[in-house]
């Protein structure tokens, strides 16, 4: 089962929920857990999980190289490029690498076979373990712009498929998604069995929650909400959820001890073990939601 954690608004507690959820359920020997930090621009889960990283593999895209002895400056490559990344001048060609998506269209279009493709590293995927949890995180190289979805796509190829009927062990993959609602978020949550949306009871939290709900509806992913740093204003979120028939799965109150622990990179279940049961409960609620709707 794949559970992703998303939010719309940044800083609402995605990583907190993802980290504490995986730590809480991985105690159970009938679950085989995997954790993917797909916030490749700003990956933070490792700060809390402190994984042993045993492998680092670069992620690269192919980008064009022109062989000028073959090139006739016909301009077909520039015409084929949908991203305006190639400009053909009288006797030179300019390639704007930051616009290149690595689609290979120019190389196919070249009648002289003058364009080869070379790989360029855009990020790295690091993997290892946290106890018996398999840990995978992606890191975008500094200055890269359009390549986060490529790294996320590569990471998600490592997701373990659910066990066979006979096997008693259940694979659970927890995905920590980036903030926002655009392509890196879509790439992260796509194909999840369930998405937890983490929000806070403020107009910002609500506004961005609504956007995130629209994304999940479009992707047809079942969802539930966690209200973080809650308190007297929770109804701003719960009224909306009630209208939209989205279940509220958990509420975490505003708590200075949790905030201080967070600032030091300490998961909340370590300072307040009663939360471990609450996160297990969160997982069971998700299982129930999916059973009711017949998704599993």
């Amino acid at each position: 089962m794949i559970i992703s954690i998303a939010s719309g608004k940044g800083g609402t507690g995605k990583t907190t929920i993802a980290v504490n959820l995986v730590l809480s359920i991985s105690n159970d020997n009938s679950y085989d857990c995997q954790f993917l930090d797909c916030d490749v621009e700003e990956p933070n889960a490792a700060i809390f999980l402190k994984p042993n990283i045993s492998q680092a593999r670069p992620v690269s895209i192919l980008e064009p190289r022109i062989n000028f002895t073959k090139c006739t400056f016909c301009g077909k490559c520039a015409k084929a490029c949908a991203f305006n990344a190639i400009a053909v001048l009288k006797n030179d060609i300019k390639i704007f690498m930051e616009l290149c998506h690595g689609c290979g269209g120019c190389s196919i279009a070249c009648p002289e076979n003058a364009i080869s493709e070379v790989s360029r590293d855009v990020g790295v995927i690091e993997s290892g373990n946290v106890g018996k949890i398999e840990f995978i995180q992606g890191k975008l190289n500094i200055g890269e712009a359009i390549t986060p979805p490529i790294i996320i796509r590569e990471m998600k190829k490592r997701i373990k498929k659910s066990g066979t009927e006979e096997s008693k062990i259940k694979h659970i993959t927890i995905i920590d998604a980036p903030p926002g609602t655009s392509c890196p978020v879509v790439e992260s949550v796509k194909n999840s069995d369930f998405t937890i949306l983490v929000t806070e009871p403020t107009p910002f939290g609500l506004n961005d929650l609504i956007l995130a709900v629209e994304v999940l509806k479009k992707l047809n992913i079942p969802m539930g909400v966690v209200i973080n740093r809650g308190g007297k204003n929770d109804n701003i979120i719960s009224d909306y959820c009630q209208n939209e028939k989205i279940p509220i799965l958990m509420r975490i109150p505003m708590d200075k001890d949790i905030a201080v622990a967070y600032s030091k990179g300490i998961p909340m279940i370590q300072i307040n073990p009663k939360y471990s049961d609450k996160f297990k409960e969160l997982y069971y609620k998700i299982e129930n939601q999916l059973q009711i709707s017949g998704e599993i």
Binding site: T15, E41, E42, N44, I47, I142, G143, Y262, S263, K264, G265
Partner: peptide, 21 residues
């Protein structure tokens, strides 16, 4: 930024990006 490990980690990366440009 905020005085959390995550805040500091992320600030360092955005500083690098700003330097790059």
């Amino acid at each position: 930024t905020e005085p959390t490990f995550s805040g500091i980690h992320d600030m360092k990366r955005i500083v690098e990006v700003a330097n790059r440009f």
